[in-house]
Design a protein around this nucleic acid. Sequence first.
RNA 1: GGGCCCGUAGCUCAGCCAGGAUAGAGCGCCGGCCUCCUAAGCCGGUGGUCGGGGGUUCAAAUCCCCCCGGGCCCGCCA
Length: 663
Amino acid sequence: MPEPEHSWQVYNLTPYRVLGASLHEALRELGVSEDEKLIEYIVAESPRPELGDYGLPIARFAKKHGLDLQVLVEKTTEKLKRYPHIAGVKRVGGYLNIVIDAAEASRAIFTAVIRDGENYGHVKTDTPLRIVVEHTSANPVHPLHIGHARNAALGDTLARLLRERGHRVQTRFYVDDMGRQVAVLVYGAKLLGEPRIPEGTKPDHWLGLLYALTHTLADIEELKKELGELKRGDNLDKYHEKLRELDELVAAASRLREKAPELFDKLAEAIRGRDPEKEIQEIMRSYEFGEDEEIVKLTRTIVEKCLKGFKQTLQRLGIGFDQWDWESDLVWSSLVRKIIERAKTTPYAITYKGALALNLQPLLKDPVIRQALGVPEGYEVPPLILQRSDGTTLYTTRDIAYSIKKFSDFNADKVYNVIAAEQRLPQLQVRLALIALGYRKEGLNMHHYAYEMVNLPGRKMSGRRGEYVALDELIEQAITRARQEVEKRSPHLPPEEKKKIAEAVGIAAIRYTLVSVSAPKPMTFDIEEALNFEQNSAPYILYTHARAANILAKARERGLQINIDNIDYTAANENPLRRKLVLQLLNYPYIFAKAADELKPELIVNYLNKLADTFNKWYTSGDSAINELDPGKRNYKLALVQAVKTVTANALRILGIKPLERM
RNA sequence: GGGCCCGUAGCUCAGCCAGGAUAGAGCGCCGGCCUCCUAAGCCGGUGGUCGGGGGUUCAAAUCCCCCCGGGCCCGCCA
């Protein structure tokens, strides 16, 4: 990846860096040291233009270190004055404010934009690492839905951010084919005599239906059995509770029957009078030990088909993986067995409820571990059972083996697991278990990137009952809606291009929405809102990009290429909107680096939206680039448009969104 | 019972970790702007006890404590 060296110069001119470095240096000369990052955090935009462009509450540093405020201000001002793009420094109350010379700032930005092009702004880290990002990893039993989409969008964006930041990144998808869920699906398939997936049906959708049918019918059988036993007992409350549960199940079943009456009836008949729970467990056991070749083959085939559906969906979103890891491979390759053996030799091994387990509590006495894993003092972590009484392993046990594999395969320094927040405890247990087994470095460097659930307004989702909106359907809706918009707004475009634009816009709208809410917040995904193509949406950003592209295309048509040697930079300060744009453009490299280092894709989203706002205001203000008669000023404006276009395109690419030249 | 996360405008969200200047967007609602580089745009208006209470501080949406509301987790499930 080419080094965007000119972007570094811009990075170091951002208000954060300039104020941070200057104050840091001034303090040092006054004999105190202060974390430069901490100063950078505190730098803020001025609330009112008359105060300056950016400011810093400097008084608190004077107070903190017992320094004379006036002396500190003077020293810092002296340092700031060395930067050619700092036009003024003023103190207002306890604040030190700077005024930026947009002309000088533009000079640096335009040079870097032209030289670094599509790498502009993506400054490389000083400490490149090898990083694994595991994400999505959905159970291969039904199609991906909106929750998986948040995971996928976050994971893919993180991977892109880290790559652009200069890390070596590998993405992985964990195929959980040994879980109970797959066993349920396989059970259903077996009962139906290994049915073929009908032509023209997406495999994951059909399997999702079969899964829901099997799960629901099996649950009904189980519940009936439980009720039969309760009747003879005397617990009336419990009996009525179960009865209500059964009612709900039957209701869910009848909804499912409407979707596929024949399949439903066939399966219902096949399952009647059987012991599904026992048989499903037997499938799990047999698969884990690879005893029954037929089960192995059937399971593999089914999961493979489901994954094919996943890949199709993810591909539409522009998401791919470097590696697909099958849980079963891990188990059959004896990696998991080695974990068990190794665990037995550690002092943490205990027998808990008659099963082999790890007592992880003692590890929490180590403050280094607590801190690295974010565990509060006094927290109690339950023992982690590694092996069932029947000799089979548990998901978490296999996850320990997998975690080691993720590090060793890629020789990784760090692993990020993009996994739902509800898995917090098992994720913690895995990390602690790694340490207990002697993989301290791994345990401390594996991170759980937790995200909260996605709610659909007015709906509850359940994979087991087949109640969900498949991501494929959502994508279709988005594209259809985008197509309508394109037809309405750009009827003159060739149909082929209209189709492409609609695809790009629809998908971008979904991705943008999913990463715009910070991960730890539960989010409400309102389809109507995601498909509202107005401000603060991917279509709005794409439109802004297309506008910029259009200006440059029109300029070329008229033979008005940008002449870099004849740019009148004084034009920067003539117009407040041009100035504001320059100030925002200046920050891109810094925002990018922050988003990557803090794993916050939403910073990119917020930045893009603000930049687009300013650009559109400038655009409609009548300060036309093409109609500018003065060549020096015209060149300036065109270069400004070019800078906006480049930054927008680069930032969109991080979000996995392809910029459009027109729409 | 214990723990974690969330609570900011009618709705969806920034800002909180690293306390500072009159709390920001978008949607919605009301009213305007297409002989002029794309109106997926722009301009104006409307709307807030930052869940509640206490504390720390020159300064609290931000830090601490208590409480309320919502979600999640505490399985030989995943």
